[in-house]
Amino acid sequence: MKFNKIFTLPLKYLFIGIASMLALAIIFVCCFGFNTSVEFGGGSQIKIDVTEVVDQSATLKKASAVLSANKLSVENTFVEDNGTQTYLVFRVTDKNIKNTDAIKSELSARCGVSAESIIGFDAVNYTTESSTVLLFGLGFVALIVVVFFAGWARYKLTGALTLTLATFVDFMLYLSIVAVLRIRISSATLISLVSSVVLTTMAIVAVLENVRGSKKLKQYENYSNKDMVVHFAQKEFLPFAVICGVVAVFGVLCLFIPNAYVQTFDFSLIFSAIIALFVSMILGPAFYVYALDVGDSRKQAKLNKNKQK
């Protein structure tokens, strides 16, 4: 029975927690802004001439260490040919780097190349078109509208409000965590966001559908709204938790892949799974019970009014 309480935690405390998270995120964004990848916010590019270098992997490791020590965040590295020369190219998310001469000297010393071999710190502009952010916002609004009206058609206003709230809270909570934990915003983080929203919607629809389908069954006629919702949330919990678990395991395993962009995706994927689980299995059922109770009490009040008349 104690486990059942997870599905109907007091809504007041849940909303206080979510609101606190959002407030913290707003403060972080106002103070520090969002942490962006090169794709979204631009960065800088550093080239090292490795034509004469025998072990390019070792040079890559040394150079990466120097850049990390100088608090530069390397997003990706690659090799390019340029006629008779070969360059190791580092792309970092930092812009307007100040101590470039010191970094060049350190790179030269550590990598065993001349200072002239370091061609550095060209500004890289972002590659995402400005319409993309607008499109993303529009896409989310379209999703909310579709979810609301489809939910209303099938599950009445209570179901529609639950679905819409869950989708909205999932979206905002994810962005809050991205802001607070300074997870880099890239197309990968946005894909994790979409994963979270889709999973949440699927799970809540499964619970609503079960509640809707079982309301008229004899075996549930003595169940209160709370009992019904808890019963079906419990039923949906295990398969959903398995899916979220698999997603989180993927994220954890890929953390071992030595690439910052992939690791960013992994972190965001783990959080997207946790948020989806929280919103669909804790917030969603709690709000649905509340909405059903409010709906029932309004119906009762109307009936009483009619009786008096």
Binding site: Q56, S57, L60, N76, T77, F78, V79, E80, D81, T86, L88, V89, R91, P258, N259, Y261, V262
Partner: peptide, 13 residues
């Protein structure tokens, strides 16, 4: 030519 930016092993163009 350039190598893949998501490879730390095949550093060749």
């Amino acid at each position: 030519t350039m190598s893949s930016p998501y490879s730390t092993a095949s550093l060749t163009a």
